[in-house]
């Protein structure tokens, strides 16, 4: 365990900063304060600190490995292929609560430093037939259990981990875009040119779990924020949604949480009739949808904004 936490891609310069900049108290980035993320105590002299890992164990690690910035918990490329031990992440999206607020998308764009063109999380207007009622449907990568995108990748640049997450390694991708062709849900985007926000992410060490800094000529997509998951925290879209549309959880624990409430996954599926997209394709997504029944908000038609506002080249 200690091994695991000691590895996160932190370079010497950050360690130095820690030594200089902090006296007492580790600086943990916490959204929700609670045992869940915070049963940690620091010790001035020994520079050892107790941290609750994502699978609920208390471990003692060198305080140097805990850093202030967001990238703190992303594992380096090799480690990132394994996944968080014992977990099987699932997401539930409650369509009855979505009102196209796009806060999820904003947060995703911001924390992954995505340029306006590469959108990982899209919110579609679903209106399949005249006779049906329209509704909004957020669609991240579905992290399929039998991912067609992973099947076709020639260099294992995109891979399926044991915890269910499908990641892309930006440092290995050769940019053939075969995975984009293979994904039946059109979730992947490509860096056609030099990514725009390089300067923002300058100090960051790339990790497939982080998704940035992006690299020209490679593919990227929603990654379920594994760096957050490693800290036992919810992905950015989940915390950003004002209506609690997204639930994230561990299938092995049979619980999912949308930040405000935590429920049993099996119960939720049973009560609300959860389903997955295009089951007929046999891709077995890790993202479940709850049907748009008894909607919280009346459907208000909005022009899909991204379409015209973003600059087009």
């Amino acid at each position: 365990m200690e091994e695991e936490l000691n590895k996160p891609g932190i370079k010497t310069n950050r360690k130095d900063f820690l030594k200089k900049g902090l006296f007492a108290g580790s600086v943990l980035a916490t959204g929700a304060v609670g045992i869940s993320s915070l049963t940690s105590c620091s010790n001035n002299s020994g520079k050892k600190i107790k941290v609750l890992t994502a699978d609920g164990k208390l471990v003692e690690v060198d305080s140097n490995v805990i850093i202030e910035a967001h990238p703190c918990c992303a594992a380096p490329a090799k480690e990132s292929r394994k996944g968080i031990p014992g977990k099987k992440f699932v997401m539930v999206i409650d369509l009855s609560r979505c009102k196209h607020a796009l806060k999820c998308q904003d947060a995703c764009q911001r924390y992954h430093h995505l340029s306006g063109m590469n959108v990982w999380l899209k919110v579609f207007k679903m209106h399949d037939a005249e006779t049906m009622a329209p509704y909004w449907m957020p669609k991240p990568c579905l992290h399929c259990d039998k991912p067609p995108c992973v099947k076709v990748c020639p260099v294992s640049a995109t891979y399926k981990r044991d915890d269910g997450i499908v990641l892309v390694d930006n440092d290995r991708c050769i940019g053939c875009r075969f995975c984009m062709a293979a994904c039946p849900y059109s979730t992947r985007s490509f860096n056609w040119e030099e990514p725009q926000y390089l300067s923002e992410t300058k100090g960051a060490v790339y990790s497939p779990e982080l998704g940035f800094p992006q690299k020209k000529g490679t593919v990227e997509k929603c990654d379920f924020c594994p760096d957050m998951l490693r800290q036992g925290k919810l992905p950015h879209c989940v915390t950003a949604c004002p209506n609690g549309v997204f639930y994230m959880g561990d299938l092995n624990e049979d619980s999912v949480s949308n930040g405000a409430e935590t429920v049993r996954f099996s119960q939720l599926m049973k009560d609300k009739g959860g389903y997955r997209l295009n089951e007929i394709l046999g891709t077995e997504p890790s993202v479940y949808y709850l049907p748009p029944v008894n909607r919280l908000f009346p459907f208000k038609d909005v022009e899909i904004t991204k379409e015209n506002t973003e600059e087009t080249k």
């Binding site: 260099v155 290995r172 991708c173 050769i174 940019g175 490679t218």
Partner: peptide, 14 residues
């Protein structure tokens, strides 16, 4: 290819 500089990956990680 987006990254022609990495063709060798096909051999290394094929």
């Amino acid at each position: 290819m987006g990254r022609p500089d990495r063709v060798v990956n096909m051999v290394l990680h094929g």
